[in-house]
Computed example of a mutant assay.
Amino acid sequence: MAASSPSALLSALREQVARIEGHGAGQARRVVPFGIPVLDGALPQGGLVCGALHEVAGAGANVEHASAAALLVAGILACTGGPVLWASERFDLFAPALAGVGLPGSRVVHVEAGKAVLLAMEEGLRHPGLAGVVGEYSGRLSLTASRRLQLAAEASGALAFLIRRGPQLNDLLLSEPTAAVTRWTVACRPSPPPLPHSPDTPGLGRARWQLDLMRCRGGVPGSWTVEACDAQGRLALPADLAHRPAAAPPSHLRRRAAPGRTAA
């Protein structure tokens, strides 16, 4: 048998790595795009990959209640079909808010799981037919526990979201490494006045978020200001920002990359 050429060996090695990461041709995953080219372009497959664990946390004053993070997750799931299992530590899920971003209560099975949120997520991911499994969790997330969720998501093909809720600002627990394929933070930004011809008139325009992609397997971290999910769960670029250059990575990543300096 003739020896394989170096290019054939390299191609086989790439296919093997892709299969290990769950992105091989035989394990093609459905992708849910954001619908914003600059945002989808930072993700290796042009959107959020199904059959994977994605981690989302609030930022600033929103870190404890993670309301913006929950609405982002609900908006993403609104663009899919099928039921959603939503597990939380206490009964504080506000169904009308989820319906306001396109995820009606008829699609949501809410479980008050206490400290067993991770177990409830893992059990939910073992059941076929779910479009997504969401957990709101305030405890420490070990690499082992997050890896179990990632493997369960890969087996089910469902979107798995873990919404991290910290008891204090800048909670160090939220920065510990996990097996999540993507890690996001969502911060609320000031809304613009609703009257373009009267910019000094205070009012409530469409809510704005700052999305920071902190980690993405095979992707590019970055930071974007977007308009919050509408009634169909869709994000949008603000009109006054749509034609500006792409946003730079989050500040902590810029500091880490600067020579001769260490991250704060």
Rank of each mutant, 00 (worst) to 15 (best):
A52K: 03
L71A: 12
G24D: 08
P44L: 14
G46F: 03
I20Q: 12
A59C: 01
A74H: 00
A78K: 09
L53Y: 06
G75A: 02
A59D: 05
H65S: 14
C50A: 12
H23S: 11
A42V: 10
H65D: 15
I36R: 03
L77Q: 00
V49S: 15
E64L: 14
D40A: 02
I36T: 08
H65E: 12
A78D: 10
H65N: 14
L71S: 11
A57P: 00
Q45R: 13
C79M: 13
V32L: 15
G60S: 04
H23W: 10
L77Y: 07
G60L: 05
L71N: 12
V49Y: 02
C50M: 05
A74R: 06
L48H: 05
A70Y: 06
A69H: 06
G22A: 01
L43C: 09
G58N: 04
A25N: 08
P37Y: 11
E55G: 00
G47Q: 05
P44D: 05
V73K: 05
A42M: 15
A66S: 15
H54A: 04
I36V: 14
A78R: 11
I20H: 09
C50F: 02
V49N: 02
G75T: 05
A52I: 03
R30D: 09
V73P: 07
E55W: 01
V56I: 15
Q27H: 10
L48G: 05
G35A: 09
V32Q: 08
A74L: 04
A25W: 09
H23D: 07
L53I: 06
I76K: 00
E64S: 15
I36F: 12
D40P: 06
R30G: 12
G24C: 00
V17K: 09
L71W: 12
S67D: 10
A70M: 12
L39C: 13
G46C: 01
